[in-house]
Amino acid sequence: MLGYSQQITKERTANKNTTIVFVALYFLLLAFFIYLTSISEPAEERIRSVIGSIDVTFKGKEKVQSEAQSTEFKSKDLGTATFHAELKQVYETAIPLVQSEINKQGDILQFRIPVSQIFPDGTSSVRDTREQLITRTASLLIKRSGIVPTDMEILMDVGNDLPAAAEMRGNLTVKRIDSLVTLLLDAGVPARNFFVGLTNANTDEIVFRFYIRENFNNQFRNEEGAN
């Protein structure tokens, strides 16, 4: 009977020792994987560097540069899509049924807005409820132009007849455009980033158009102080 009891005690001790060994091996394996994780990132960077050297050797420098430029263009397109989405959110929130259009290339976005949505009848002052629309537009344009040179165009309808040069100063549409320009300048938009114009399409609309410029240089006039 005593021998049987001693045998059970030995088996329990053996099982306990086996459990301890198993737990110890588990933690040792866990520590090993933590170590591998800690050194994996530098290894990946070294691998990328080696692969880059191989690409230059076998593909040639021009092809590698071409692939890099392709990635840059995709990033630029993505940035344009995001910029357009943010603009649409701003304009559709301010004016729920605003009409927006994007060209086939996807690099020009414009909004058509009834003049009465921006200006009260017979006045040249922007509605108080629309000033935030202009300031938020300015904020997005400034942010975007710091990444990709982007310009804004404001085209306002004057009805059937364009005003003569002598009538410009007293023309209501011209005063309204001046109000929009003042708001944009006060919000920090450089004068080189937006352009204004008049049309006699008789649509009673204001068109806000946003498009990518070819480079950061001024399109139509030199920077202040430049030759």
Rank of each mutant, 00 (worst) to 15 (best):
G146M: 08
F208W: 11
E214K: 15
E214P: 00
P163F: 04
S145Y: 11
E205G: 00
N171F: 05
P163E: 12
V181W: 02
M152I: 04
D186V: 11
S145N: 14
L162A: 06
N200L: 06
F195W: 10
N217L: 12
F216R: 03
L180W: 03
L184T: 09
L172Q: 07
N200E: 13
L155S: 15
F195S: 05
R192L: 09
Y211M: 11
A166T: 13
F216I: 00
A165I: 14
N160L: 13
G188S: 08
L184Q: 08
L184R: 09
A187G: 05
F208Q: 03
N215R: 06
I212K: 08
R209M: 10
D151R: 10
F194A: 08
N218V: 01
V158K: 02
G159E: 11
N218R: 05
L198H: 09
V148F: 00
Q219P: 00
I147M: 04
D186H: 06
A165K: 13
L184F: 13
E153D: 02
N215V: 01
A191N: 10
R209G: 02
F210T: 04
N215P: 00
I147L: 04
N193Q: 15
N160G: 03
E214D: 10
D186S: 09
R192S: 13
D178N: 13
A164V: 05
F208E: 05
R213Y: 01
L155D: 13
G170C: 04
I212F: 02
D157H: 07
V189T: 05
K175Q: 13
I177W: 07
A165Q: 12
Y211T: 12
D204S: 10
S145M: 04
L162V: 05
F216G: 02
L155Y: 08
T199K: 15
R213Q: 09
L155T: 12
V189D: 01
L198G: 09
V174D: 09
T173W: 05
P163V: 09
L185D: 03
D178A: 14
P190M: 07
Y211V: 03
F194Q: 07
T203L: 14
G170M: 08
A164C: 04
S179R: 11
G197T: 06
I206F: 02
P163H: 08
L183S: 10
Q219C: 04
G159A: 06
G197D: 12
F208P: 00
G188D: 08
S145R: 07
D178Q: 13
D204N: 14
V158H: 01
L180H: 06
V207Q: 11
N160S: 07
V174C: 02
L172Y: 00
D161G: 01
M168K: 06
D157R: 02
E153P: 00
L198K: 06
S179E: 14
N171T: 03
S179Q: 12
F195P: 00
Y211E: 14
I177S: 11
V189F: 06
G170P: 02
A166C: 07
D161A: 07
V148I: 10
G146Q: 14
D178E: 14
R213G: 01
T182Q: 14
L184P: 01
D151L: 15
N200M: 05
G197S: 12
V207L: 13
G197Y: 09
D157A: 05
F208N: 03
R176Q: 14
